[in-house]
């Protein structure tokens, strides 16, 4: 499936699902921006619909861009080998010690578990079904004194001492 053919299929998705469709960076990979609240619904459709068949979640990456966390789900179809980047965003909370809640996609792609666990520890994004962090007590909010991959993180300052 070429990128244009994939975009043609994406165009047929229900209205309101896709906020923007663009190529990912300078690559030929398609990417779509969606509303965060619909990530499970859209993810399940992209996995189960035979036209898409994105049954493998290869990676989950978060980048803080100004006051927004951009969450990227790198999807792949095992059968066809096609790839898609599913993207959504969530606001960075005003206080750096505050966590922000987001939707877990573990019920759609089981492989999301270790990525969500890491993101929870390092960015303070709590995924709804992530029961327990897999990382140790040395990391995470308690060990780092904050969420180290946020841009406002100050190393070595425990929470509460600098606001």
């Amino acid at each position: 499936m070429e990128t244009n053919a994939l975009f043609a299929k994406i165009n047929k998705l229900p209205e309101g699902w896709v906020l923007e469709r663009v190529r990912f960076g300078r690559s030929q990979t398609a990417s779509i921006w969606i509303e965060g609240g619909k990530v499970i619904e859209i993810g399940r459709f992209l996995k189960d619909d035979p036209n898409f068949d994105f049954d493998w979640l290869e990676n989950v990456s978060v980048a803080q861009l100004d006051r927004v966390f951009a969450i990227s789900y790198f999807l792949r179809s095992r059968n066809s080998g096609h790839t898609l980047v599913l993207r959504c965003s969530v606001d960075v909370p005003p206080n750096k010690q505050d966590r922000v809640e987001f939707f877990s996609v573990q019920e759609v792609w089981e492989a999301a578990a270790p990525f969500e666990s890491e993101i929870s520890d390092l960015f303070g994004i709590v995924f709804s079904s992530n029961e327990k962090s897999m990382m140790s007590a040395l990391t995470g909010e308690k060990g780092f004194g904050g969420f180290p991959l946020r841009k406002d993180y100050t190393a070595g300052v425990p929470l509460g001492e600098d606001g």
Binding site: E58, N59, S61, L65, F74, A111, A113, P114, F115, M134
Partner: peptide, 26 residues
């Protein structure tokens, strides 16, 4: 996997790795 984000500045905005071993631990 390696996701690199640049804002054109002197340092990377974000470099994220998808190491294979994460899944092996799972």
């Amino acid at each position: 996997g390696c996701h690199v984000v640049s804002d054109g500045g002197p340092s990377p905005t974000r470099i994220q790795f998808r190491p294979p071993s994460l899944a092996h631990f799972s």
